[in-house]
Nucleic acid binder design. Structure first.
Lengths: 335, 335
DNA sequence: GACCGTCGTGGTAACGATTACATCCGACAT
DNA sequence: ATGTCGGATGTAATCGTTACCACGACGGTC
């Protein structure tokens, strides 16, 4: 591999001059500059970011640890994060935790060893020691979507309570009274806050949320299938299943289809997180849409503020209900 | 940030010894080892991978440049790649080219500057200078799914010709005679090979593939919509639309829905790439499934062989047809 | 008892960049 | 003619590791 030294000797200058040209420092004579530049292209020189990072103590790289790459919500988020970061001259390294705390820890550790400038996390668990230590040690960090309570780390997320309330109102108007929810792991904030919001909304309509109607999922497809099966095996099954994320909704559909049940005729279905496919499922799924792209952008903005020594605030956006046909035909309009 | 020096002085040994302990070199007395280890935990020391990489000339990192993160096929691939790499002690940095050659180049450049040990690429274009140079310069490289012709780089991909033939046979048996395809960009291998396979299969059934039935897409949703609209505006629209990837199939469905057409009653639809959602669309989509996970594993295996100085072979797996209802009800079995 | 191999350890030179400081040189003012 | 100033360039220290070499101690062999 050719190094800055090769370029220097090839151009007949010192390494300092080459470095100055590469970082376009003003104090370089135009002809020297062009001599260096031609040497660079002739040799096909490519600066070594590793050496540069060692010297400058910055990698211009952000780490992003997401809970599950196979979840379209997170890939959309990752894409927005990468876009926003690139615009500002940063790269992003993505770590997929696959909803497993151990894997999340693995990724956080490697990212920290690589000395990324800042960390964006959507935690899989409720209180990770490594994340806690890193935050305490002053690693620039921002939580996105989910967060860990009791840490002084900015959070960028969407508040779904209003939308959940709208959803319940919609369901109630359609005549549904027995509503069930498949929640996420209680260690995650999104896991229990969505259940809490659902319960509050039911409460406002004078509806109960009995324990047997609150399934305990893990945000993965299989748990959606399992909890739906449990609901259906109840002596009095619910009239509506609300899945707290899109993968569990997919699992729920699998189980409903397996049993030959028709949506919404036999049972209604709704999901948290809206994705393009929900428009094309049979039937199209009523969902709560988060402003995913903006979530990513704002998170990067906050993190880069932290990285560059400024302060950063938490950001709360709002999710909104997108009504389709999976809960029953009320208004004829479905997008 | 605490360095190996701090650990050394804290443990009362030299930096060389600390390094030996950390890389578990055998020649260290057990009590020295444990003294170092306690110093490490007490100080919360975390080795600096940047410095290590500079010194050892290896990053234990693979670069993966994919064409589009929002395409479930590629996220599934990325996930398999990361899994396989992690098992072997490598990390993966993903670059999303978003089907844009310029963005692909950006990512290849940054990855090369970071001195990744090897590069996995699913090229967006047909002949990138940077990729060509990197390959010529001996950067360990493997193409996956798509490739660039004329380069001596191993390719790991799935052959879809048999499955396309099966698909055409299936369509023919259902009575369809006017079949159209939305292909990918002709610069990509998958773009034109899928069209070629389709044409060959039609030929075998004595069916023509007129130019107006070969749409030119770019593997993105919007182009699927556009080309489908063009088909439908023809004086004699096709009876079947075959989309060369799942996103264009999504676009096609959007357009069909917009026009109030019913699948398969009014027009049939099939797609290359199978994804979980295709089971739940209205109707479930007949698709050609690639062994995505194995593609990722084999690609990593080949690349690591190259990285570690062994040789690597190209691998060709086979795709298979998954029949569902979107082309018409023939056999009662779907799934 | 001299010799030799091995083990455990320390010192230190790289790796490839950036950058503070030193140096040189020409121009300009006095 | 001398001094000063500033622009252009070179020298060398430095970042945190690893790896090579050296060295002392110890045990075994003849």
């Amino acid at each position: 591999m050719t190094s800055i030294k090769d370029v220097a000797s090839h151009a007949g200058v010192s390494v300092a001059t080459v470095s100055r040209v590469l970082n376009d420092h003003p104090a370089v004579r135009p002809d020297t500059r062009s001599r260096v530049l031609t040497a660079v292209t002739q040799l096909g020189y490519r600066p070594n970011a590793v050496a540069r990072s060692l010297r400058t103590h910055q990698t211009r790289t952000l780490g992003l640890v997401i809970s599950d790459v196979l979840n379209p919500f997170f890939t959309e988020l990752a894409r927005a994060v990468e876009d926003a970061a690139r615009e500002r001259g940063y790269s992003v390294i993505i770590g997929n935790a696959d909803e497993r705390a151990a894997l999340q820890e693995h990724h956080v550790r490697t990212l920290l060893e690589r000395r990324i400038d800042g960390l964006l996390v959507s935690p899989t668990d409720g209180g990770n020691a490594m994340i806690r230590d890193a935050a305490a040690a002053g690693t620039p960090m921002v939580f996105v979507d989910r967060w860990i309570r009791g840490l002084d780390v900015p959070v960028v997320h969407a508040d779904g309570r209003g939308a959940v309330h709208d959803l319940v109102a919609h369901l109630h108007a359609l005549g549904h009274r027995r509503l069930a929810i498949i929640g996420g792991p209680s260690e995650t904030t999104t896991g229990d806050e969505r259940v809490a919001a659902f319960r509050a909304a039911l409460d406002a309509h004078g509806l109960p949320l009995p324990p047997e109607y609150t399934g305990q999922g893990d945000f993965q497809t299989e748990s959606g299938r399992r909890e739906t099966a449990a609901f259906l095996d109840l002596p009095e099954p619910p009239e509506v299943v609300f899945a707290a994320d899109n993968l569990m909704a997919l699992g729920a559909m699998d189980e409903l289809r397996r049993r030959g049940l028709r949506v919404p005729h036999d049972i209604a279905l709704a999901a948290f997180d809206d994705i393009p496919w929900f428009l094309h499922t049979d039937p199209p799924i009523t969902a709560i849409a988060q402003p995913t792209g903006e979530l990513g952008h704002r998170a990067v903005e906050a993190l880069i503020n932290l990285v560059e020594g400024r302060s950063a605030e938490s950001v709360t956006l709002t999710a909104r209900l997108v009504t389709r046909r999976s809960c029953g035909e009320s208004e004829g309009k479905n997008r």
